[in-house]
Design a protein around this nucleic acid. Structure first.
Lengths: 319, 319
DNA sequence: GTGAAAGCGCTAACAT
DNA sequence: ATGTTAGCGCTTTCAC
């Protein structure tokens, strides 16, 4: 039950703890000694204590990731990108899901700080920013996703461009009566809607009708009201794709014949369902975020990625 | 840049480090002293070092979770259950995704061991068992999901019952020519197929035709061959649901009129698509797994959960 | 090439 | 009620 320590290995191999440490970390040791030490470590089942190691370095080698919603494909790919870079740098990744609960976000960021993570990638709203900024001031590189925040690195999407991409596609498909559904108060979605408006107006198309929802319960009603005056529904967040789609099909509407549908972020069932989307290069965004942590640039970086359209016919044919 | 330590706080407050420690951890301290210490801690921006705390306790308070596939809804709900119990016990959760790569599974388990996690929940195949068993012997409670393993706790589904549930539903819907698609070598899926065979034979229905696949590329071909002699396709793993469904619809087959479809594990789009599934109580399973870690029962526990059928019409009407 | 010893930030007896 | 002291497991000078 008592853990095997470096001291036990030292005794077993008949050397000092310093020597064992050197062997384990590749210092200057005689071949024969090293062999003996490895053997002892092996036979005693020694497993180095990463905690004590970190206490020395002042911080651990772990990269922390605080995610608002693990069930979102966007975040899943983002994480994959982070994992990839972390693995290449021998950094374990500590992932925490906050389930979109603001209080948990702040708490998780603090927990990560207390774990003395090497760096932190956060997707959270403004509440956690203060904690993150303090961490950054203490020398822990923090990368915020999908937003910018003073003093923190940021990796985000060109949201206005995403909106314009949507407008362009709608224009190509001859859709002009557009209803937009967005989450309330979310800066990214505000910008996407803004880009959409810009794009539509540049094409001489009427401005879209916009409705904001707080959570999924409100989607069905919101979609219903949009349908009164529009033939196309645009959703500015992948999170609500399922609900919006359901609101449409429940009404017996066919896509794209009865109503056009366009949303954000690709997902596994999209191709089966023939849903067109504007996607973010989430995997690459994750990689870049992790790289910022590894590279520790001196000044806050602001990295912006470009969106892509995947047309699958849910707005009709892009003649 | 230099981190604020308990010593700094002590100096600032004019007390000893012991007193600060007591204040922070709720020992016996005079009101006035405590107030002064809190104030100092606050003004210096002190953040306790969880690493050094753990080194003392011998292990950290973190619960480790190694997941083979974060993109699976089953695992997502499992994690939610774990998170819930962990949060209630003030345990941070360290999540690692292995992307179904066996080498990463073993590596991640070892990494968790080195982080001296309080306990470990694993979904991995046999390769990682040795490491986990060693951890268990060293006093770290390990819970394995969806399998049993000597010396480890286990939380799993009654897979045979799941198969029988499928058989019962197929029987109710009058489906008798059943083709089964399973992942190769996976014990859970073998048992589900076995339950299916039992259930069908008890109902006097013909035995199903079974085909095994290694990965997603093979699904389309496998489904094609099943369709030659069957009017219903059963999938024993939620992981392949998308691929199988696509293989069906790509052929222009209507569900359930041209072909019946039944699969494992519920997912967000299932209700929209009208796909019937047999589900596991994944959230509860996660809770139970985390509870085992918190409670540390002396002998390995073997917890088995029962599956449920959600009929949505993809096998026809359950007359 | 190897060991002795100091110390990382913190906690827990043991004094006072 | 508070300070002193001795470690926890490990790394890292600094001698030998």
């Amino acid at each position: 039950m008592k853990r095997v320590t470096i001291g036990d290995v030292a005794t077993h191999a008949g050397v000092s703890t310093a020597t064992v440490s050197r062997v384990l970390n590749g210092g200057l040791v005689a071949e024969s000694t090293a062999a003996r030490v490895w053997e002892s470590a092996e036979s005693l089942g020694y497993s180095p204590n990463a905690l004590t190691k970190s206490i020395f370095a002042g911080r651990s080698s772990t990269i922390g990731v605080v995610i608002r919603d693990l069930s979102s494909p966007f975040y899943l790919d983002l994480i994959r990108g982070i994992d990839e870079v972390a693995a290449a740098n021998d950094s374990p990744v500590m992932l925490a899901n906050t389930y979109r609960r603001t209080d948990r976000e702040a708490a998780q960021v603090q927990a990560m700080d207390q774990q003395r993570v090497r760096g932190l990638v956060i997707t959270a709203d403004e509440t956690a920013d203060n904690h993150a900024r303090r961490m950054a001031e203490n020398g822990t590189p923090c990368v915020i996703i999908a937003r910018t925040a003073p003093g923190l690195h940021s990796v985000s999407l060109d949201d206005v461009a995403a909106g314009r991409l949507m407008a362009a596609h709608l224009g190509d498909c001859g859709r002009s009566r557009v209803g937009v559904l967005s989450g309330r108060h979310r800066p990214t979605q505000v910008k996407r809607a803004e880009g959409l408006r810009q794009g539509l107006s540049e094409r001489g198309l009427p401005q879209p009708e916009e409705v904001l929802v707080e959570n999924e319960d409100e989607v069905d009603g919101a979609v219903g009201s949009l349908l009164r005056r529009n033939d196309t529904v645009v959703c500015t967040t992948g999170r609500l794709t399922v609900s919006v789609h359901m609101a449409l099909t429940h009404r017996g509407l066919g896509i794209p014949d009865d109503v056009g549908f366009l949303t954000m972020d690709d997902f596994p069932w999209a191709s089966t369902l023939g849903i067109s989307v504007v996607t973010q290069p989430s995997y690459e965004m994750g990689r870049r975020a992790a790289e910022l942590i590894v590279e520790e640039p001196a000044t806050p970086a602001r990295i912006v990625f470009q969106p892509t359209l995947i047309a699958r016919g849910s707005c009709g044919s892009g003649a």
